[in-house]
Write a protein that binds this DNA or RNA. Structure first.
Length: 286
DNA sequence: AAGAACCGCAACCGCTCTGGG
DNA sequence: CCCCAGAGCGGTTGCGGTTCT
């Protein structure tokens, strides 16, 4: 026996909403609110619709603060970053995008962004950028062991950044790991730095992303327009920071995971630079 | 010009979560 | 605790519009 339906499907209208229905629902909600009871709402509003359908219509289309239209580059960036870190938790991702609904974000990801990233991944000369979660067996940095999805990308940090600015660095730079690094004197590793050294504030989403702040002692961007940058974020892909916190927190261990860091040089990387939408920094794809 | 293929998005479905009794 | 109704969520579908052949 299946689950009981949430409403009498024989007596409710389905399919696209008419302008009259939209008006009735909008007027009712604006006047009375939802009352915390969507099941009873359609009857009160004089609608022959399922409560769930009303809720969806309101949340995804009729709400006054809904933003319609194309997604910006900045929104792309946020979606990609969060999707990398937390997966398809659309409601959480949407909560970071004012005016966007989970349905919007989900549709956008499935119809456009996913394909866009696939094209980017295929066109990358060396590897993909860290927007993707490819289960690739090829490693972006020579010698890095293939893990669940090890992709690497760097972000030159502009030292003129406002100190109050926030860069998503994942838990690789969160307070807990920074403390661990500094307490155990691990920072000499390859120019690994504390994010706060650069005058920017790490913004941890409480996820296992993995951006390492480093100085230019291990990175050279000469010849590709970034030679003047002396601080960078290097993102090793989801999971690496977690490892640093749980057993890979020594230089030997780091090199075990990523031996390529020992002679890591960006100078050999292609200058497939793109301007990041928020204007805080730029990134290159390794 | 017409049919096929593709695309984007609104809406639905069914499962999980949550809170009140 | 347990149960259940309702809310919330993510995956999927269906359809209208657009582009391609």
């Amino acid at each position: 026996m299946g689950r009981a339906p949430c409403c009498d499907k024989a007596n409710v209208k389905r399919g696209p909403w008419s302008p009259e229905e939209d008006t009735a629902l909008r007027n009712y909600v604006q006047k009375h609110g939802t009352g915390g009871n969507w099941i009873a709402l359609p009857h009160k509003a004089g609608l022959k619709r399922c409560g769930k359908s009303c809720r969806l219509r309101w949340l995804n289309y009729l709400r006054p603060d809904i933003k319609h239209g194309g997604f910006t580059e900045e929104e792309d960036y946020i979606i990609c970053t969060l999707h990398q870190n937390i997966g398809s938790r659309w409601s959480v991702i949407a909560s970071h995008l004012p005016g966007r609904t989970d349905n919007d974000v989900k549709n956008y990801w499935n119809t456009k962004l996913k394909k866009k990233l696939a094209v980017l991944a295929n066109s990358a000369h060396v590897t993909t950028n860290n927007y993707t979660q490819l289960s690739t067996s090829t490693s972006p940095v020579p010698g890095i062991k293939s893990r669940n999805h090890v992709n690497c990308f760097s972000t030159p940090i502009d030292k003129s950044l406002d100190g109050a600015s926030s860069i998503e660095t994942g838990s690789g730079c969160n307070v807990e790991s920074q403390k661990l690094y500094s307490d155990s004197n691990q920072f000499p590793v390859l120019g690994l730095k504390e994010i706060s050294d650069f005058g920017v504030r790490a913004n941890s989403y409480g996820v296992s992303s993995s951006s390492f702040p480093v100085d230019n002692s291990c990175i050279s961007l000469s010849g590709n327009g970034y030679g003047e940058a002396d601080t960078f974020l290097v993102d090793m892909g989801y999971g690496s920071a977690y490892d640093l916190l749980h057993g890979y927190s020594s230089q030997e261990k780091i090199l075990e995971v990523a031996p390529g860091l020992a002679n890591f040089s960006y100078s050999k990387l292609l200058a497939s630079a793109e301007t990041k939408p928020h204007g805080l920094h730029q990134s290159i794809t390794l």
